[in-house]
C-alpha cells in the first residue's frame, strides 16, 4: 500500500449518503396495524365528545348559557324541549363542593400515609402495606357507597350534628332543618376515603424519589427526621402531591354510585354542607335516567358533556403537573 494514493479531499466535502431504512412489506404492514390500533383510544375519546355534543346540542341551543346557571329541572311534557326547563347549576356546584371537601378531608391522610410508608417504616412492612393500599384502591365504589350509607352515616350524622352545634355560626355549617343524613359532608367523607389510596400512590412515588444525598445532608447538619423531611422531601414532592390530589379530584368529580347512595339530591344551589341536600352531576344522570323521556335524555347527555369537559380539564392539569415533577427529579 502506498501512501501517495491516499488523497485528502481539500475543498469539497464528500457527498453524504443518506441512510435509507427500507422496511420490508410485512414490517410496513405491521407498523401500520399497530399505529392504527393505537389511534383507537383517540377515536373513542373523540367519539365520546362528539356523540355527547351531538345529542346534547339541542339542549344548549334551547337554553344556551342558562343550562349552566339555572337550577330548575323540569321535564314538562317530557316529549320535547319546549315547555321543559333544564339547568345543572345546583348539580355542578354540588359536584364541586363535594369534591373539594373530599380533597380537604383526604389531604392530611394522603401526606401522612405517603410519608409514613416511605420514611417511617422498614422496607418489608412497606411492601406489605403498599399492596394493601393498592387493594383498597380497587374496592368498587358501590361497596364504598353501601358502607357509607349503612355503616358510616349513623356515625357521621352525629359528627355533623356536633360540628353544627359548635360551629353553626359559620355559614357553611349552618342548617335550616336538623337533618344531617345524606349530606354533602357524608358524601365527601366517602369520596375522601376513596381517593386516599389513589392520591397516596402518586404522592408516595414522587416522595420516594427525593434525593438521598440531600436528606443525608439534612441529617448531617443535625436535623431530626421531620427536619429532613421538611427541608428536602416536602418541597421536592410538592408537585407530586398536587398532581396526586388533582387526580383524586378528577375521580371525585366523576364518581357516581358512591355519591348516589349517600347524597340527597336537591335542585337548588346550596352551600350548607351539613344539611341533607346537595347536588351532583354524575348522580343526577344515574338517578334520572330510568324515568327520563326523550327530552330529558337530551338534557342528561348535555349534563354528561359538562361533566366530561370538567374532569378532562382536571385530569389534564394533573398529568401535566405529575409529568413535570417526574422530569425535574430525573
Amino acid at each position: 500500500m502506498s501512501i501517495a494514493t491516499v488523497e485528502k479531499p481539500t475543498a469539497a466535502e464528500p457527498p453524504r449518503r443518506s441512510i435509507t431504512n427500507q422496511r420490508n412489506a410485512s414490517d410496513k404492514r405491521f407498523r401500520a396495524v399497530v399505529t392504527s390500533g393505537a389511534m383507537f383510544a383517540f377515536v373513542v375519546l373523540a367519539l365520546i365528545a362528539g356523540f355527547l355534543l351531538f345529542r346534547g346540542y339541542e339542549v344548549f341551543r334551547e337554553f344556551g348559557f342558562g343550562f349552566l346557571t339555572s337550577s330548575t329541572w323540569d321535564s314538562g311534557t317530557g316529549e320535547s324541549l319546549q315547555g321543559a326547563s333544564y339547568g345543572v347549576a345546583a348539580m355542578l356546584v354540588g359536584s364541586i363542593i363535594v369534591a373539594l371537601m373530599a380533597m380537604i378531608i383526604a389531604l392530611p391522610f394522603v401526606i401522612g400515609t405517603s410519608l409514613f410508608l416511605e420514611y417511617y417504616i422498614g422496607k418489608k412492612i412497606r411492601a406489605v402495606l403498599v399492596s394493601i393500599l393498592d387493594l383498597m384502591a380497587a374496592i368498587p365504589s358501590i361497596i364504598y357507597g353501601l358502607w357509607g350509607y349503612l355503616v358510616l352515616m349513623p356515625h357521621a350524622a352525629g359528627w355533623a350534628s356536633t360540628i353544627n352545634k359548635y360551629f353553626g355560626w359559620i355559614p357553611i355549617f349552618k342548617v335550616d332543618v336538623k337533618n344531617f343524613d345524606a349530606s354533602p359532608f357524608i358524601s365527601a367523607l366517602v369520596l375522601g376515603l376513596m381517593i386516599i389510596p389513589i392520591a397516596s400512590s402518586v404522592t408516595r412515588e414522587v416522595y420516594s424519589r427525593a434525593p438521598q444525598d440531600q436528606i443525608s445532608a439534612a441529617y448531617a447538619l443535625g436535623g431530626s427526621r421531620w427536619g429532613a423531611l421538611k427541608a428536602v422531601v416536602l418541597p421536592f414532592g410538592r408537585s407530586g402531591l398536587i398532581g396526586g390530589m388533582l387526580l383524586g379530584l378528577g375521580r371525585a368529580l366523576g364518581e357516581t354510585v358512591a355519591v348516589l347512595l349517600t347524597l340527597n339530591l336537591v335542585f337548588k344551589v346550596k352551600f350548607q354542607v351539613l344539611a341533607s341536600a346537595g347536588g351532583n352531576v354524575a348522580s343526577l344522570i344515574a338517578s334520572r335516567f330510568g324515568e327520563a323521556g326523550p327530552s330529558e335524555i337530551k338534557a342528561l347527555m348535555a349534563a354528561g358533556l359538562v361533566l366530561f369537559t370538567l374532569t378532562l380539564l382536571v385530569n389534564f392539569g394533573a398529568s401535566i403537573i405529575v409529568s413535570r415533577s417526574a422530569k425535574v427529579s430525573q
Binding site: P211, D213, Q214, S216, A218, A220, G222, A231, P235
Partner: peptide, 20 residues
Amino acid sequence: TAMRLKVGMVFQKPNPFPSM
C-alpha cells in the same frame, strides 16, 4: 442530632437544598 451538630459533613457530590 446534637452530636451531629458538632460533626459537620461535606459530601462527594455538592448537594445544596434546591428549594432554598
